[in-house]
Design a protein around this nucleic acid. Sequence first.
DNA 1: CTTGACACAGAACAGGCGTTCGGTTATTAT
DNA 2: ATAATAACCGAACGCCTGTTCTGTGTCAAG
Lengths: 228, 228
Amino acid sequence: MMMVRKSKGLGERHQKILDFVLAYQRENRYPPSIREIGEKTGITSTSVVNYYLDQLEKMGKIERDRRISRGVRVSGANSSVDTLRIPMLGPIAAGIPLLELDPNVTYLTDNESNAVEIARSLLPSKENGDNLYALEVKGDSMIDAMINNGDIVVMKPASEARNGEMVAVWLPRDNEATLKYFFKEKDRFRLQPANPTMKPIFVKKSEPLEIKGKVVMVIRKMDKPLAI
Amino acid sequence: MMMVRKSKGLGERHQKILDFVLAYQRENRYPPSIREIGEKTGITSTSVVNYYLDQLEKMGKIERDRRISRGVRVSGANSSVDTLRIPMLGPIAAGIPLLELDPNVTYLTDNESNAVEIARSLLPSKENGDNLYALEVKGDSMIDAMINNGDIVVMKPASEARNGEMVAVWLPRDNEATLKYFFKEKDRFRLQPANPTMKPIFVKKSEPLEIKGKVVMVIRKMDKPLAI
DNA sequence: CTTGACACAGAACAGGCGTTCGGTTATTAT
DNA sequence: ATAATAACCGAACGCCTGTTCTGTGTCAAG
């Protein structure tokens, strides 16, 4: 039989085992047993699998909980990363009214076909992640909020805001939805575009202004090339 | 003995088990055994744990792989979501040169203290996720790319680009780094700002222009309120 | 009161699974 | 050539673990 002795680092079988454990974990959401690892990597003896697992552990590539079945895990790599499924509730555009949302209702995020998956670590630190929803921006009307056509905005239901927070507001005056930084001043509201080169909008406190939510995140995928 | 019969839905023990499995999974990265569930939830008999697990499965709250040790997982909830750890390699600003990156080197994403976690489903569809890195934008110089101070840009190493792709370029002419849509024209390159109201930059093909990478994603956290 | 569904407990069984040990072959150093 | 070592294999041992079966006390309906 031919056995190649790798000078250092990961040999072929090390890599195969590592890949398999990772793939298995991803698919089944629990780690494989030693025997399963052996079967899928062409190792017939459980002791050999154990032999390699010991080495991988010494290399720091995996961690093991001895005497516990399926107690293998790949170090560092994925899993354990807390992700949220945030439902995509629809589009947002200048001309169309914003959705009416009850801040006290949890919108189903399980089995939701159209959802955005976001690692909790990506959210603003104090955000607990409850009741978030996502909207897809249609059109170029949000440019002064530094938001493009196709961007995804993650929002939190709210009907009021503190100074300096970016909110989605509906302006009955102009029949328009917009995203702006919100400031309350003496007798008016100042709606400040994110783009510092652009001028704010002022709305008198006597005029109607409906805050629909706070913007938590903006995500832009550079999916397809610009066609200009 | 006192036993409360819950009319419907999850009883106290259902919830306890569900919470424990979730917490255990998060901590150990593999599911608990039936006996472990019992111990920690105050159930002395394995059959009773099994009894509840069966119910939880019928409710669709968990999934089980029978006959497989530790074959429990909580439906819907986290895990299984394929996340990438993308290393944050530093800041990007107009005045400072861009990092020199070798597209063939994988930058360690394990044990990386400073990394961005992104669900694979969030990436552009054809992106495989290899060799990505992230930069944090400093300053307002990228405003014409619709990118703010504090934004995170996810990049892929590249030294050339196709028309319409957004790239990070270093312009020795102006001693400046910038993010623009890239277009090759007859005898010049056109660097088009993402903001359609702004004018493009033209660079003659004879002049130097270094493409340092393609922009894959932009992420903006609305962390702290605007202070203006 | 009886009956049946429900919520448990405990024990026993069988297969799953990690571990260990004896043994073999190939590679490398002496 | 020989010894040491690394890379295997197979089998056996014994705990781990899911499953199943019997039994008990509670509660509500008939």
